[in-house]
């Protein structure tokens, strides 16, 4: 039975652009290979922390929202632990209210992006 999940992870700021993309790709492909269905991804880019983590003050945030079998979550998180580029991660299962909220949020973000593109402001 597929559950809704949402995972946010933080990568060290020391990475270059394509290294960051490649690690995101790695996790994405891991999920797809395990039969998960990725619904939505958000890259918040470089953000400042409220408190230093591992002596660093900024990090790349990335969010992946997906549906998956509950069994794969344990070794998905094992992948996080093994990868030293990931400083911190959080995987959360979404109940129906949370899922409805994320649908609404995604629609809002899409409209906002379309509006910005229309105005010629490149996000």
């Amino acid at each position: 039975m597929l559950n809704h999940y949402e995972t946010v992870f933080i990568m060290t700021p020391v990475l270059s652009e394509e290294q960051m993309k490649e690690t995101v790709k790695k996790f994405e492909s891991y999920l797809l290979e395990k039969g998960a269905e990725i619904l939505h991804q958000e890259n918040w880019g470089l953000k400042k922390f409220e408190y230093p983590i591992e002596k660093k003050n900024t990090g790349f945030y990335h969010l992946i929202q997906f549906d998956a079998e509950p069994s794969i979550i344990k070794d998905f998180e094992l992948q996080y632990r093994r990868d030293e580029k990931i400083m911190r991660y959080l995987t959360v299962s979404l109940d129906k209210h949370a899922f409805a909220y994320s649908e609404k949020r995604r629609k809002l973000r899409k409209e906002k992006q379309q509006k910005e593109e229309k105005e010629g402001v490149i996000l």
Partner: peptide, 9 residues
């Protein structure tokens, strides 16, 4: 959770 992700101190 927000504190864990360093979104809140």
């Amino acid at each position: 959770r927000a504190r864990h992700l360093a979104l809140l101190p």
